[in-house]
Design a binder for these strands. Structure first.
Length: 984
DNA sequence: GTTGGTACCTA
DNA sequence: GTAGGTACCAACG
């Protein structure tokens, strides 16, 4: 590749020393004439982002040609971010060149400490240059000049001509250029620096920055500084004397090593000052019109396309063709799923160029505070009391809510400002621990605020914080609701509702994706692996940064999501009327837990163990030697090599497969033993032993955790332990279910939606035959068999019904003849014939599947019954297998996702009618809800639950603003008994 | 001590 | 053929 000649520049002679005496000083400029109503002039320090993102982002980001792309992506994202934020009309991206500059000529030490650039970075540089050009942004590289000096010069000229300026960089040296109309922004971290921020950070004015650097030196730039003068002394001296000149005039009164060395090294000071000074009067041959961004979307789109193709930036590439694709709303640095804003979109936002954020460009740097005394806490309380809404985050000793103890609390009332209230940090040698406020006093004062429904609470994964605070008798979630001026929001759920697939929804992921910011990780502050300590062992000043960042980031995410939700009423309602109420209910269910019968589980464990030992002995007997029956590898070798059994198949890793599908076709005693052994060890290790281990020692209750923002379809998942996969298919497995019981005087009641996904298929497809079968209340699988085979329902045999059931499930899963053949143990041709016959009888279903597939291809998403958009990122994947997989998922997603929507509505509906009955909702298993009910109220409660569940679409959904006219009835089946097995 | 592969439990 | 979680082994650092 060659560098573009969009900008050609006269080289600067490195031997020509700038005239420092006459150099204009940006920080001291008069700025009264500057017009801040125009968009700012944006100057990007390209070299900074190159290095920063190359080292900060994983080197594993690469295309299939082996080209590392992390710096390309990182720099591109930084560029797009700053453009999106300020909508500039004029801009320049500046890079260093390899050639020496006047600073090298001045000092052999200058940047001599820098190791040579990695080849993996070098090869990325031309791509970045070309991307900048293809985006229509002026690119400046001048032989003999550094990016800093080009930026300094252009910043000076811009202000002189009445423009205000944003310099996009993370280099602190640039702070010398800051004034009322020039700010810095690090577009990688999002940090903004104005003059106040410089004062906050170093205690000096931007105009003193050169002197500051001169005195304390900068090892990375090879500036030596004055020995004995560091950050603190330099600050104190500058505050006293204003500048180095005055300082030297009064050097006699400066005591100690600093004074002595100032005299001794006085001769070096002018030289160091020159190295530290950014040149502002470089002979850059550009006038204002050269620095205009080319906003014509067509001008460079083919160049962009070629670049994205070569780099394999697939989403960015796709976005060129689908400029309005909904997945394009935001940027990600590291997430390969992320979409970059297309050229067309950049152009669009530039054209709309309303300067959204004059305030932004004047904003102070984020201010993070640690609250360690009464006045500070009282002032925080006052802010929280008068706020419409605020961010709260708890820091605790454990990520498991059940064992978590509160360590501190952080708050944010606006972006870039946060407070941390440490409470129970216990690190020895940390003198701040003694200054902590008393936990109970703090909580007592916060309680009325946290429980006040008129003050909105914002948080990331609030269910967790609610659990923690409930241990201290504070009900955080109980009264959460939003009104236009008073927001409640869980940013995790907001992100999930807006787009479940584009990123994961942990805070680090959200910060990376939506804010292009790498957060301080928990491992950074607490260590990792065995050496990790709990948060109360983290030093308070470090903990405070971490906690404040969490609150701050959450507030910034809130700002983004608030805007996105305001533009999309469906997503707004999904969050506030569905997900947040669901979270509140899940919180109660998790806290409630389900009672287990320990003795029974222990007995089962013992029994299973005996049988397992016996089976193992038999296996070793048959094999003639001992081996690990639980190792698929050893078993495969034993069976297919040593014993010479036929029928061995290999997995893709070259091992023998010993899956049930393979083994069940083999007639050999060792196979039977193996399958039984596996069944029992699965039950013992995953269920009987595990449940006993996790049950609460005092109450014998098991408390699962539901993940509400994990699945691609809107379903919940359950962990620690997973109570959504308790065995039911085999008699032995059902023994486990019998261990889930109700306390004395109560019973377990289970209510499940019958055939909900097939009913949804009937609804979505409108197929006459399928709809009729449900409306007539037929056995749906038998009805399918009768329909396809052209006989009466009463004449359908068990095998025919079984086959029909398989095809019905196949439908829900995006069926292929291949898959159906495998399931039914028939040839592909037979399976295809069967499918063809099915579609002939159910043409509406066939049409639905085709339409869904087509629509997913076109839009990039499918929708559930409540309008939740489920994105299908791989739907146009170049790999055929991947694409077909995405198509099957796209067919299944509206069905599975709608069922998930409905049961969430059902939980909300049921939760409303339960309180007067003393019944408690305990578990959700996708289409089933499990309750604990007083024995004498079973009929009454069962009736209430059934009605609530069956009528969700006519009652609850309508109440919450959804209008769905459902094509078939929703049927709920309930049963009860002294354990979960009996209730099912 | 972490990670990928295999197997198997659910709707 | 869809969507999940957990346990175990074996290899890797």
């Amino acid at each position: 590749m060659t560098d573009n000649d969009h900008n050609s520049h006269t080289p600067i002679d490195p031997d020509m020393r700038p005239n420092f005496d006459a150099m204009p000083n940006v920080a001291m400029m008069d700025t009264s004439h500057v017009d801040k109503d125009q968009p700012p002039f944006v100057l990007v320090d390209g070299s900074y982002y190159l290095f920063r993102t190359y080292h900060a982002l994983p080197k594993t980001m690469a295309n299939t040609q082996g080209l590392t792309t992390n710096a390309i992506r990182g720099t591109l994202n930084a560029l797009l971010k700053v453009m999106r934020r300020y909508h500039p009309t004029h801009m320049a991206v500046c890079f260093d060149t390899k050639s020496p500059t006047f600073r090298h000529a001045m000092s052999s030490d200058y940047k001599a400490a820098r190791p040579p650039m990695d080849p993996e970075l070098v090869e990325q540089i031309p791509y970045i240059h070309h991307l900048v050009a293809a985006l229509g942004i002026p690119l400046l590289r001048i032989e003999g000049a550094e990016a800093d000096d080009i930026i300094g010069t252009l910043a000076y000229r811009a202000v002189e001509q009445g423009h205000h300026v944003v310099i996009s960089t993370g280099d602190k040296d640039m702070m010398q250029l800051v004034n009322d109309c020039v700010i810095l922004e690090d577009s990688f971290t999002g940090k903004v620096t104005d003059s106040q921020a410089v004062v906050d950070k170093f205690g000096i004015e931007p105009s003193q920055m050169i002197d500051f650097l001169t005195l304390m030196g900068d090892s990375s730039d090879g500036i030596k500084g004055v020995p004995g003068i560091g950050k603190k002394t330099a600050k104190d001296l500058l505050n006293k004397y204003g500048n180095i000149e005055t300082m030297l005039e009064n050097v006699a009164e400066i005591k100690g090593r600093a004074g002595k060395n100032l005299v001794e090294y006085a001769d070096d000071i002018p030289f160091n000052a020159q190295l530290a000074t950014i040149v502002t009067d470089l002979a850059v041959g550009h006038d204002w019109s050269d620095l205009k961004i080319n906003t014509d979307p067509c001008a460079h789109i083919e160049k962009l396309r070629a670049l994205y193709t070569e780099l394999e930036f697939k989403n960015e590439l796709a976005s060129l063709d689908h400029p309005n694709h909904p997945a394009n709303g935001s940027q990600s640095v590291a997430d390969s799923q992320a979409d970059a804003e297309s050229q067309a979109q950049v152009a669009k936002s530039l054209q709309s160029s309303k300067i959204e954020n004059i305030k932004d460009s004047k904003r102070h740097d984020k201010a993070w505070h640690t609250v360690l005394d009464e006045p500070a806490f009282e002032s925080l309380l006052k802010q929280l009391t008068t706020a419409a809404h605020f961010v709260i985050d708890t820091e605790t000793t454990s990520m498991y809510w059940r064992e978590a103890e509160l360590v501190g609390l952080s708050f944010a009332v606006k972006a870039h400002e946060a407070y941390y209230v440490p409470l129970t940090h216990r690190l020895e040698d940390d003198e701040l621990t003694t200054k902590q406020l008393d936990r109970d006093t703090v909580l007592a004062k916060l309680k009325p605020i946290l429980q006040n429904p008129n003050i909105g609470k914002i948080g990331q994964h609030l269910k967790y914080d609610a659990h923690v605070l409930s241990h201290y008798d504070i009900d955080l979630l109980g009264s959460i609701h939003s009104s236009p001026n008073n927001w409640a929001m869980d940013t995790m759920l907001a992100s999930y509702v807006i787009n479940a697939a584009i990123t994961r929804h942990g805070m680090d992921d959200l910060a990376r994706h939506y804010l292009q910011t790498q957060t301080i990780s928990f491992e950074d502050v607490a260590g990792k692996g065995a050496k990790q300590v709990s948060f109360d062992q983290v030093a308070i000043d470090i903990a405070s940064d971490y906690a404040c960042e969490d609150a701050d980031i959450t507030y910034q995410l809130f700002d983004i999501f608030r805007q996105k939700l305001a533009e999309n009423d469906t997503n707004f309602r999904l969050l506030h009327e569905l997900e947040i109420p669901t979270a509140q209910i899940l919180c109660q269910m998790e806290a409630q837990g389900i009672l287990i019968k320990r003795s029974f589980l222990n007995e089962l464990s013992k029994r299973f163990d005996e049988e397992i030992i016996a089976l193992e002995a038999q296996a070793h007997e048959l094999a003639g030697e001992t081996f690990n029956l639980g190792s698929p590898k050893q078993l495969g070798e034993m069976l297919f090599e040593k014993l010479g059994v036929a029928g061995g198949k290999k997995t893709k890793s070259g091992q023998y497969s010993t899956s049930e599908a393979v083994l069940s076709k083999i007639d050999h005693p060792l196979v039977d033993i193996t399958l039984e052994y596996r069944g029992l060890s699965k039950l013992k290790s995953t269920y009987t032993d595990a449940l006993d281990n996790v049950a609460d020692a005092e109450t014998d209750r098991v408390h699962t955790s539901y993940h509400q923002a994990l699945t691609s379809t809107g379903r919940l998942s359950s962990t620690d332990p997973n109570l959504q996969n308790i065995p039911i298919r085999t008699a032995t497995g059902r023994l486990i279910r019998q261990a889930f019981i109700a306390p004395k005087g109560r019973v377990i009641l289970a209510a499940d939606y019958s055939q909900i996904e097939l009913r949804l298929m009937a609804h979505f497809s409108g197929d006459k035959n399928l709809t009729r079968a449900f409306n007539e209340g037929l056995d749906i699988h038998a009805a399918t068999a009768a329909e396809v085979l052209g006989k009466e329902v009463t004449d359908v045999t068990a095998t025919e019904r079984r086959n029909a059931k398989a095809i019905n499930f196949g439908l829900l899963y995006g069926m292929s003849a291949f898959g159906l053949a495998k399931q039914l143990q028939m040839s592909r041709g037979e399976a295809q014939d069967y499918i063809d016959m099915y579609f002939e009888r159910y043409p509406g279903v066939k049409e639905y599947m085709m339409n869904t597939r087509a629509s997913a291809h076109e839009k990039g998403y499918v929708e559930t019954i409540l309008g939740r958009k489920l994105y299908t990122p791989d739907i146009n994947h170049s790999n055929r297998m991947v694409k077909q997989g995405a198509e099957r998922a796209a067919i299944n997603a509206p069905l599975q996702g709608s069922a998930a929507d409905l049961i969430k509505l059902a939980m909300i509906a049921v939760d409303k009618v339960l309180p007067k009955t003393q019944a408690k909702m305990l578990l959700q298993v996708h289409d089933e809800l499990v309750f604990e009910v007083d024995s004498d109220k079973v009929d009454e409660v069962s009736q209430l639950i059934t009605e609530a569940m069956q009528n969700v679409l006519t009652d609850t959904a309508v109440e919450k603003g959804w209008q769905v006219s459902f094509a078939v009835p929703l049927l709920v089946e309930t049963d009860s008994g002294k354990n979960w097995d009996e209730a099912h």
